[in-house]
């Protein structure tokens, strides 16, 4: 079941086509990666999902209903260009953001206290953002995004500008929220993060959708029949002379087969020649490799 469904979205700015007939579904309860290089049109799509902008044509469905104002209260958005009121106190600021998302004053206070306790930062309540370090204010920013317990969380480049410790913390929090059944859109141009976190992705380039699917399926679909085998001891070169070796290192070999061969043949070759195999695995393409290949193919 899709929480969000984009159908034939078109958006132009003057002569610039920011979204060109984009359709995809975002499954409920998944961490969904929206990938693409800078300027691909990710932020435009997000702004349409958050109702900051409206598509020129096409539909967006939220839980099967046409996207409406009330859905913004079920959505939490952390933009790439983000910030807080510098002079405002942490507590007041979070309460304000929560109330704009439809919480009552007392609900907002309760939620703020809950999150500050969770992060062990209740002492920050009366500090102004000015007094906080960048990492600290990023934490507050994250709390501000999730304070109203949204069903859909949209994070645009959430790790940019974060140190490793805070990155880890936010990543943990994202996983936690996902386990609670929240749907998370994770937009980034850094592909390696996606593989670690996302289950499903859509690839966007120059305003058009290039690919979509689950990370596992995509890797299977674009795999090249490559295997990596590690071994100990001497390897008789004649064994591998008939194979297409794409990479060779000390005690490690990466081999590519044609479509008709299977990994077992390589393993059998090593076993029959009495070479001690320490590990054997299929080499799947990274999302980055798939992306580059697709962009070049288009």
């Amino acid at each position: 079941m899709a929480l969000l469904s984009l159908q034939h979205i078109q958006k132009r700015y003057g002569n610039y086509q920011a979204s060109n007939d984009i359709s995809f579904d975002i499954p409920k309860g998944k961490i969904f990666g929206m990938l693409g290089p800078n300027g691909a049109g990710k932020t435009t799509l997000i702004r349409m999902i958050t109702r900051i902008l409206y598509p020129d044509s096409g539909n967006i469905l939220f839980n099967g209903e046409p996207l409406a104002e009330r859905h913004t209260e079920q959505t939490g958005y952390m933009p790439e260009e983000r910030g807080l009121y510098k002079k405002m106190k942490v507590g007041e600021q979070l309460i304000y953001l929560a109330r704009l998302k439809g919480l009552s004053n007392s609900q907002a206070k309760q939620a703020v206290n809950g999150w500050l306790e969770k992060f062990n930062i209740t002492s920050w309540y009366n500090k102004s953002i000015d007094e906080l370090s960048k990492g600290m204010s990023q934490k507050i920013q994250f709390i501000g995004t999730v304070i109203h317990n949204p069903d859909l969380l949209i994070l645009d480049e959430p790790f940019s500008g974060l140190d490793p410790i805070n990155s880890k913390l936010i990543e943990e929090e994202i996983r936690q929220l996902s386990l609670q059944g929240k749907t998370i859109i994770f937009s980034t141009h850094r592909m390696e993060q996606v593989e670690e976190i996302c289950s499903d992705i859509v690839l966007i380039n120059k305003g058009s959708k290039i690919l979509e699917g689950s990370v596992g399926d995509l890797k299977q679909r674009f795999k090249e029949n490559k295997f990596r085998i590690s071994y100990t001891g001497q390897l008789n070169e004649s064994i591998v002379s008939n194979l297409q070796v794409v990479n060779k290192a000390e005690g490690e070999l990466t081999v590519q087969f044609g479509a008709e061969h299977k990994g077992n043949e390589l393993l059998r070759l090593f076993v029959e020649n009495k070479v001690e195999v320490t590990s054997f695995n299929e080499v799947l393409p990274t999302i980055n490799e798939i992306f580059i290949r697709q962009v070049e193919a288009n």
Binding site: R51, I52, E73, P79, E81, R82, G83, L84, L100
Partner: peptide, 17 residues
């Protein structure tokens, strides 16, 4: 100008018109 410089404006724009 402050809200724009602070970059809080997009967060706000996703909550209210």
């Amino acid at each position: 100008m402050e809200e724009k410089t602070n970059r809080i404006v997009e967060v706000l724009a996703s909550s209210v018109k």
